[in-house]
Amino acid sequence: MSEISLYRNLDEMMPWDARLQVLGVIGISDEAPDVKTFTFRSDNQTWFRYKPGQFITLELPTATGPLMRTYTLSSSPSRPLSIAVTVKAQAGSIGTRWMFDNLKPGALVKAYGPAGDFSLHSHPAAKYLFISAGSGITPMMSMLRWLNDCAPWTDVGFVNCARRPEEIIFRKELELLGTHMPGLSLGFMIEERSSREGWFGHIGRIDAVRLPLLAPDFREREIFCCGPDPFMRAVRQMLEASGYDMDRYHQESFAAPVVEEVPAPFAPTGGSEEPVEAMTLVRFALSGVDAECVGGQTVLQTARASGVRIPAACEFGLCGTCKVKKLSGDVEMNHNGGILDHEIDEGFILACCSRPLSALEIEA
Rank of each mutant, 00 (worst) to 15 (best):
G178W: 06
G178D: 08
G178S: 13
T179Q: 08
T179W: 05
T179E: 09
H180W: 11
H180T: 11
H180I: 04
H180M: 12
M181V: 03
M181N: 01
M181D: 02
P182F: 05
P182D: 07
P182R: 14
G183A: 07
G183Q: 06
L184C: 08
L184H: 07
L184W: 03
L184I: 08
L184R: 02
L184S: 02
S185R: 14
S185I: 08
L186D: 08
G187C: 10
G187L: 08
G187D: 05
G187F: 08
F188L: 09
F188V: 10
M189K: 06
M189I: 15
I190A: 10
E191H: 10
E191L: 14
E191F: 02
E192Y: 10
R193V: 09
S194N: 11
S194E: 13
S194K: 09
R196P: 01
R196Y: 09
E197R: 11
G198V: 03
W199V: 01
W199P: 04
H202S: 12
H202W: 11
I203K: 10
R205Q: 15
I206W: 03
D207W: 09
D207I: 13
D207H: 10
D207N: 15
A208S: 15
R210G: 01
R210T: 15
L211H: 04
L211N: 01
L213C: 04
L214K: 07
L214P: 01
A215P: 02
A215C: 15
A215Q: 11
P216F: 05
D217W: 07
D217H: 12
D217N: 08
F218W: 08
F218D: 01
F218L: 10
F218Y: 14
F218M: 11
F218G: 00
F218A: 02
R219Q: 09
R219A: 06
R219K: 14
E220Y: 06
R221N: 02
R221K: 15
E222I: 03
E222Q: 15
I223H: 01
I223Q: 00
F224D: 00
F224V: 01
F224C: 00
F224I: 03
C225Y: 05
C225W: 04
C225I: 07
C226R: 04
D229S: 14
D229E: 14
P230K: 13
M232C: 12
M232D: 03
R233Q: 10
R233A: 14
A234R: 10
A234W: 14
V235G: 02
V235S: 03
Q237W: 13
Q237D: 13
M238P: 05
M238I: 12
L239D: 02
E240T: 12
E240G: 05
E240D: 07
E240P: 02
A241Y: 10
A241T: 11
S242C: 03
S242V: 09
S242E: 04
S242P: 00
S242N: 10
G243A: 04
G243C: 07
Y244D: 02
D245R: 05
D245G: 01
D245V: 07
M246Q: 01
M246S: 01
D247I: 02
D247R: 12
